[in-house]
Design a protein around this nucleic acid. Structure first.
Length: 153
DNA sequence: GCCAACGTTGGC
DNA sequence: GCCAACGTTGGC
């Protein structure tokens, strides 16, 4: 099993949305590095859900990958803001995953704390200038995160 | 709202 | 293949 971190702006799609919907297609990723990580995901992988562009950015919950290598349909939809005119059904450019709600933590594990607890080497998220919305976590980092989040309860 | 950091585009 | 211009991300 592998561990990941998925960023989302709660004004667009937050952990509450995932909780309500139960599961969701993780659509709209339009960055090749992020897409390549999405492609590596396997069902049963665990993803930490991160809220960005909010008062207190940080990890707010957990999601489970339930389906991987799913073609992102928004690339074909001219009405979508994720429309990609260079994509075709024969040659799709964007693949993603379906995730299901797992847990919402009682409080946010803030970016501020994450910066104190993890080095930039072990956690890409706290690297300066990091903008990647999908990133891998090592087993040891994932375990420490799980402990931190449950101790916070 | 600002702006640093980064990614993408496209002319050459 | 280079790189300037532009667009986007996301913390602050």
């Amino acid at each position: 099993m592998n561990y990941w971190l998925l960023k989302s702006e709660p004004s667009t799609f937050g952990i509450e949305n995932l909780e309500q919907e139960g599961q969701s297609l993780w659509d709209g990723v339009r960055n090749y590095q992020a897409r390549n990580f999405l492609k590596q995901m396997q069902p049963s992988d665990l993803a930490f859900f991160y809220h960005s562009n909010i008062d207190i950015p940080g990890i707010v919950g957990l999601a489970r990958i339930v389906q991987s290598n799913v073609i992102d349909p928004t690339q074909f939809n001219p009405e979508s803001k994720y429309f990609d005119p260079r994509a075709s059904k024969e040659a799709p450019r964007w693949h993603t995953v379906v995730v299901k709600f797992e847990t919402k933590f009682p409080q946010t594990l803030s970016l501020e704390r994450l910066k104190k607890l993890f080095s930039p080497e072990e956690l890409m998220l706290v690297r300066k200038g990091n903008r990647l919305s999908v990133l891998p976590l090592s087993l040891s980092v994932a375990q420490r995160l799980v402990n931190l989040c449950s101790n916070d309860a």
